[in-house]
Simulated scan of single mutants.
Amino acid sequence: MSYSTFFPVAFPALAFAHFVALLSPGQDFFLIVAHSIRHKLQGSRFICLGVALGNAVYIGVAIFGWTSIRDNKVMYLLVEVLGGIYLLWLGIALFRSTKRETELHFEQLEIPTAKKQLMLGLNSALLNPKNALFYMSLMTVILGSEVTLIQQISCGLWMFFAVLIWDLLIASLLGQPRVQKPLSGYIHIVERFAGLILISFGIALFVGYLNF
Rank of each mutant, 00 (worst) to 15 (best):
F29S: 07
L118D: 07
T148R: 09
L122I: 07
M1P: 04
V79L: 15
I37Q: 11
L205S: 07
V79E: 01
G185S: 11
T98E: 15
L133D: 04
F134W: 12
R45T: 05
L31K: 03
I189F: 10
I85P: 01
D167P: 04
A93P: 02
M75Y: 06
H188T: 03
Q176L: 15
E107F: 03
L122F: 15
G26K: 00
L143E: 11
V20R: 08
Y3M: 11
I47F: 09
L196P: 04
E103A: 15
L77Y: 04
N123P: 00
S2E: 12
L120I: 04
I187K: 03
G43W: 02
E107C: 00
M1T: 08
V81F: 13
F11W: 05
K40L: 12
N72M: 07
F16S: 10
A132R: 06
S24R: 06
V190N: 05
A62T: 04
F193C: 12
G54N: 09
L174I: 14
L41T: 15
P25M: 03
A171M: 10
K115Y: 15
Q117Y: 09
L77C: 04
G43F: 01
L118N: 07
F193V: 15
Q27D: 09
P8N: 05
L198G: 08
A194M: 15
F95R: 09
A93Q: 12
S172M: 10
M1Y: 03
L169T: 13
A194K: 05
N211C: 03
G60W: 05
E191Q: 13
H105P: 00
I63D: 07
L149D: 03
L109P: 00
I199Y: 02
Y3D: 07
L78V: 13
L196S: 15
V81T: 11
S2D: 12
A162Q: 12
I59L: 12
F201N: 03
G83N: 05
G65I: 11
V190I: 13
Q176A: 15
G144T: 11
K116R: 15
R178F: 13
K130T: 02
A15S: 06
Y76H: 05
L138N: 02
E103P: 01
F30I: 00
L53K: 08
Q152M: 14
L149M: 13
A194C: 14
F7Q: 02
L77M: 09
T148H: 07
V147C: 02
V20N: 07
V74L: 11
L22D: 02
S200V: 10
V190E: 08
D167W: 13
F19M: 12
P12S: 08
Q42P: 02
G65C: 13
L126D: 01
I32R: 04
W158Y: 14
L87F: 15
A56N: 06
I63Q: 09
L164C: 11
F19L: 12
V141S: 14
S124I: 01
L133G: 10
